[in-house]
Design a protein around this nucleic acid. Structure first.
Lengths: 123, 123
DNA sequence: TTGCATAGGGATAAATTTATCCCTTATTGT
DNA sequence: ACAATAAGGGATAAATTTATCCCTATGCAA
């Protein structure tokens, strides 16, 4: 696995939460798990833009950060379920706030994101 | 400048907010600007772990996403001031929620972050 | 018996983000 | 004269994160 070389900044609350939520799909994973989509395959279907590989990796980090817990059922075909820990649950209102703001400002956001994209994307 | 190759996902509110806040220092920049630290040099002093270069780049993106506005005073030595747009201000409560959660769970966060770090860092 | 679903991970390439280094301009303080 | 401050950006290297591809295993259904 990749070995970090630059130590993280852990000065304030924003640093700390950033350290556990920084990852392209982590917030969505937490959200969908909270919604009851617990199995990796369900999560994959909810987030088709992500590869199975990255989801696994980010789930593992969420688990190491104790935001989710994982249960492996010893059956065949394999069955795995993730759920939020109490710690993870405490984050849901914050994620809800993020999502609501995004929803409320959907139009403006799309507009500025796409405007900037015009200059910076290869078609 | 770097040309993106992979288009962003813009399906839900979480995607959208992620698109404008994803960047190592962006949330902190918004926060400190809101606190009244408007000049680049002040921001740099508030965030010494970041290089001046990245802060400039991230400020530029925040500006392109219309979360902050920039005023250049035609004086020597140069003077520049950033401030939040109304759109940017609307984000402050959300950032406050992130920061509070981080502060409230400071101990646990430090613990899990460092525990995971033991396995993944080069000393 | 071929194919799909389930879960996961190694190896490697590519994409993206940050870090480093250096250079410019003009004024103020020493 | 020389260093410091202010702001910014080009060039390039390094770090970090994602994407791709491929391989394992087992029972069930067509």
């Amino acid at each position: 696995m990749y070995q970090r070389k630059i130590p993280p900044s852990l000065n304030c609350g924003l640093d700390l939460i950033g350290e556990v939520l920084y990852g392209k799909w982590k917030v969505r994973l937490l959200w969908f798990i909270n919604e009851g989509h617990k199995r990796p395959s369900e999560l994959q279907r909810k987030i088709p833009d992500a590869s199975r590989r990255v989801l696994n990796m980010q789930l593992k980090e969420l688990e190491e950060h104790e935001l989710v817990s994982k249960v492996i059922y010893p059956v065949v075909p394999p069955k795995v379920e993730y759920s939020l820990t109490d710690f993870g649950k405490s984050l849901i209102p914050v994620i809800a706030a993020l999502g609501s703001w995004g929803d409320e400002h959907q139009e403006h956001l799309r507009s500025v994101i796409l405007k900037r994209a015009e200059f910076n994307y290869i078609q």
